[in-house]
Structure formats: C-alpha cells, structure tokens
C-alpha cells in the first residue's frame, strides 16, 4: 500500500515537473508597456526610426517607457497572423484590403476603421516605379518598354505579396488608360508577365533578386523600396525610372480594436498612429522615401518625388473587394494570365 502511494507521488511529481517546465513560458508577453506593430516588408527601415521618435515623444508626454515591437512579413501573411491571434495592437499593412480581411472570421476591427484617422487612414502613400541598371542600357522609360522582347522583368507573386498586387494593378491601369479597353489591358499585362523569370514571395525578395543576384533588366517596385535599394547598394549602380502613369499606392494603418481592448492599450496604440501625422513624423516618412500625406511636407521634399499621373484604386477599380474577386481569386484574371503564358 505504502509503496503504491510512493509510486503515485513520484508519478505526480514527474508529471507536474514536466508540465511546469512546459507551461513556464506561457506567462508574460503583456506585462510591460509595449505595443506590437504588425507591418509589411518594405517598412522595416521607416518604423525602426519612427519607433524611436514615438518612444521619445511618449516618454516626454506620459513618462512611461514604451517598447514598440515590430513584426514584418508579406502583407497578406501578417493580416492572417493577426486573424490567427497574433496580438498586434496596430497593423500597418500594404493595402486596405488586407485590413478589411481582419473582419473575415471574427470582428477584430470596426468596419469603419478607415474613417477613424485622417486621410483615409493613410498617413503616407507611395507609387509604383521602375528600378533599372546603371545607364539604363535597355532604354526603359515607360510601361510600353517593358514588353519589348529582350527585357526581363522582376516582380513578386501577387498571390503572396501586397506590393505585387499594386504592380499588377499599375500595369493594368496604364494599359487600360492608354489603349482604352479591358481586353487590351489583359493582353498588355499578359505580355508583361511573360517576361518575368522569377516570382519571389515578397516585394523585398524581388528587390534582393534584382539587386544582389543581378536578375532581370527592370524591377517593378514601390517607389520607397526602389530608393531604399539604391541607397543600400552604395556602388550607385541603379537608376529609378518614373513612368508617365502609375497607381497611387495607399498603405493603410489601423488600431486592432479587439486586441487593444483586450490588452488595455488603446490609448497608446491610437497615439502611435496619430503621431504619424505630426510634422516630425511626416518628415521622417519623407526621409524614408514615402510620400507624406501632409501637402506642406510634400512641398519641402518636392525634388525627391517627381510628379506623375496617379490613378487610385477606388476610382479606377472600384475598391479592394472587387479587385480581389476579379483579379486575384482562384481562377481570377491573374491565374488565367499565368496559365495562358504557360500553355
């Protein structure tokens, strides 16, 4: 009897030790004053400096020590991570459609999130430009030059990358505008994607393929990403070409309601996003090659941002919901184009 008891005791001890070891890291994660910003790939450098700026501001205002944690990845992937429970207080994603998706399974965010902050919750915009090799050896000046037979175009996969969707839509918008019909636009975009030798999973991946691996003649990219690549590659071996028409890319930001209410961090999270519209933050944004939403700051940096005709997603395509269904769903236009190129 005694022996049995002893054995039982030992059993329980071993079990509880193993469970204890295992359960130990479960606690924590929310004790400090910290917020988590889930963002997409090309904003790494911007938010790295902005987090310092905001932490200082917050310290001066409230005296709290704030740590802003960052997570970067493809825009769609980040949205899915938040849907699946990543405790991100704020999301700063590549397209409004990915933030809309936060309501897909559970209402994580207010439906009218876009009206809660100025400028449609878009503190900075950008556009799609071309990055070519030094001296522009293939004479690329506008979209039409991309479908010449000796050109290789690098762009990521629209299914996994938010930036790639903007690229696709910019090309479509250009062709539709120039040739006047959807059919022509289809043919143009198909000719363009027939020149793509590699499709990385993210915008940053494509930039690395173009810059570091020397693949392709032209990279279709965010304006900010193109400038950043040019800056990082000190050898000065790239040039940025701004096409005549492009798309106004509107990366959006939002506070994730369910998470800030759960963690009690609504105040700091909202302030974090609102401060993006302040003058110092807008300057920082311009220094990181995004176009600020404050017209006064844009004027300050106007030599940095050449002017071009910018189409908007709402006017040209009728919003992200329609874009997603028409172009990027399974068997949508993108799938059709790729299939026709292959077979």
């Amino acid at each position: 009897m005694h022996k049995h008891k002893l054995r039982l005791k030992k059993t329980i001890t071993i079990f509880s030790i193993s469970i204890g070891i295992f359960a130990w890291p479960f606690q924590g994660f929310s004790k400090d004053i910290s917020i988590l910003n889930a963002s997409y790939d090309p904003t790494r450098e911007l938010f790295r400096s902005y987090n310092h700026l905001f932490a200082e501001y917050w310290k001066a205002k409230t005296g709290d020590n704030l740590t802003v944690y960052e997570s970067h990845g493809g825009s769609g992937k980040q949205a899915r991570a938040v849907i699946d429970g990543m405790p991100a207080d704020v999301v700063t994603l590549a397209l409004a459609g990915d933030i809309d998706a936060l309501n897909r399974y559970k209402p994580l965010i207010d439906k009218n999130w876009q009206n809660r902050l100025p400028a449609h919750s878009t503190p900075y915009t950008s556009t799609i430009v071309f990055l070519v090799r030094k001296g522009n050896p293939k004479h690329i000046h506008d979209w039409d030059d991309l479908i010449k037979s000796d050109i290789q175009v690098v762009t990521p996969n629209p299914k996994t990358s938010g930036g790639a969707r903007w690229n696709f839509l910019a090309a479509w918008a250009y062709a539709q505008n120039k040739y006047g019909s959807e059919d022509k636009a289809y043919q143009f975009v198909k000719a363009l994607y027939a020149r793509v030798p590699i499709m990385d999973t993210s915008a940053r991946g494509s930039t690395l393929s173009f810059v570091q691996r020397g693949l392709g003649d032209v990279l279709i990219s965010w304006e900010n990403e193109a400038y950043m690549a040019k800056k990082e590659e000190k050898s000065n071996s790239f040039e940025i070409i701004t096409p005549s028409i492009s798309i106004l890319t509107e990366p959006s930001v939002a506070v994730v309601d369910s998470i800030v209410d759960h963690r009690g961090s609504r105040e700091v999270a909202t302030a974090y996003l609102q401060y993006l519209y302040s003058d110092p933050a807008q300057r920082l944004i311009a220094q990181n090659y995004y176009r600020p939403c404050n017209p006064a700051i844009v004027m300050e940096f106007r030599d940095k941002f050449p002017s071009l005709t910018l189409m908007t997603i709402d006017k040209t395509f009728g919003g992200w919901k329609r874009v997603k269904d028409k172009f990027f769903s399974d068997n949508g236009i993108f799938d059709k184009i790729i299939r026709e190129i292959r077979y």
């Binding site: 991570a81 849907i83 699946d84 429970g85």
Partner: peptide, 21 residues
C-alpha cells in the same frame, strides 16, 4: 489559431500559443 474550437478559451485565459514562445 482562430479556426480552432479552443480559440475562445485561450483568449479568455490570456493564453497565447501561436505567435508566442
């Protein structure tokens, strides 16, 4: 994750499993 039947239980008890250690 959010697809799971445990998800609400985990949220209520502040248990973060994925996207955490």
């Amino acid at each position: 994750g959010s697809q799971s039947i445990f998800y609400n239980f985990l949220i209520e008890h502040h248990l973060q499993v994925i996207y955490a250690i």
